[in-house]
Simulated assay, not measured.
Amino acid sequence: MTITQLQYVLAVAEHKNFTVAAEKCFVTQPTLSMQIQKLEEELDIQIFDRGKKPIQLTDVGQMIVAQAKNIVNESGRIKDIVDQQKGYIGGEFKVGIIPTIMPTLLPMFMNNFIKKYPKVNLIIEERTTEEIIRMLKNGQLDAAIAATPLNEDFIKEVVLYYEPFVAYVPENNPSFGKKEFDANDLEINLSNVLLLQDGHCFRNNVLNICKASGLPNDVPFQIESGSFETMVRLADEGLGMTLLPYLHTLDMAPKSAAKLRHFKEPRPSREVSLIYNKKELKLHIIEALRGVIAGVVRGAITFQNVEITSPLQKK
């Protein structure tokens, strides 16, 4: 039994296809199939049910995959230990970022990090919070940037900044004349508040602002979109108002910026953190990444009197 064989098994278990798994492992499909077959012969069991499409794990295969994940992850930590002892900041480092943070934060720090740490092969993946939690647990990501707190025992959260929510209010909206917003001001717009689609934690943040203000749980939000840009355009068409993260508002044209309304203090905000598995050993790279991000956001976000809203859906 070899680590390579276990890596091949994990690839097939993830992609449920031998050809795709081989491509991901950068080997030919016959090579991958032969190594998995050798492992099955050695163990005298079948790991995969090849008669089903897509390929499925057998009962014993599911248990083998669970253990293989631990073995492969732990074997990879040996090099991490050596790199950390040598003070070497380099190698592959996979980071997941949620969609509502990636477009604004990534351009702010990526170039600086590459220049400062050229030996780090930074791999960025846009993932939902749910995917990030699963991938951190399975060792498929080294770290992630997401809205917190997530209340996961195995995850360490290092706060990067607090980002207030900003209301985008078109001229025809009853609240356009307000200079500052209160969470209770959302009540008069319940039927036409524009939200991100279900599955985005930013949506949960906004809904939780309403619930924290004592507004009804069955808020009749009617229009949902997949991007902030679309919501802004819909608002400009007179279809409602929306809430945006503060960083997303910094580059708005003056005409659009005139429609922004800040909330009264303490400002409803989301907590953005660098998160990682508590078993993670690449702490030297994590600290390097935290330092670079903290340096670039320090000048952009200086809010302190904030009230954190949860990114988790409240029952």
Rank of each mutant, 00 (worst) to 15 (best):
N112I: 10
R134P: 00
I89M: 12
L141P: 02
I133S: 00
Y88N: 04
V158K: 11
F93D: 12
V60D: 14
A143I: 04
F154Y: 14
I36L: 10
L106M: 11
Y117H: 12
I114R: 13
Q140F: 07
E74A: 11
K79P: 00
I97N: 07
N121A: 07
V120S: 12
V60R: 14
T128M: 13
V166R: 01
P103R: 11
P99W: 11
P99S: 08
Y88Q: 08
I101N: 09
P164T: 06
A68H: 08
I123S: 11
Y161C: 13
D142H: 15
V169T: 15
L141T: 01
G51S: 05
Y88M: 05
D83C: 02
K69E: 13
G139C: 05
L105R: 05
E40Q: 14
N138L: 13
D80A: 06
V72I: 12
K38F: 04
I64K: 12
P107D: 09
E126Y: 06
L150N: 07
K53A: 05
R50S: 01
K53N: 13
I124L: 15
G91K: 06
I155F: 01
M135L: 11
D59F: 08
L160P: 09
F48A: 03
L136R: 00
L141M: 08
T129V: 13
N121R: 05
I78E: 15
F93K: 06
I64Q: 11
Y117W: 11
M110F: 13
I124N: 05
I71A: 07
A147R: 09
F93I: 10
A68T: 03
D153C: 03
Q46W: 05
Q67M: 11
F165G: 01
Q35D: 05
R50F: 02
Y88W: 07
R134N: 04
K94A: 13
V158T: 12
P103M: 14
M63E: 15
F48K: 01
V82L: 07
E157S: 04
L150E: 08
G96S: 10
T104M: 14
Q62I: 06
N121S: 11
E42A: 10
M135P: 00
A167K: 02
E74G: 02
P103T: 12
P54A: 09
P107K: 10
K53F: 09
V159K: 12
L105N: 05
P103F: 10
G61H: 00
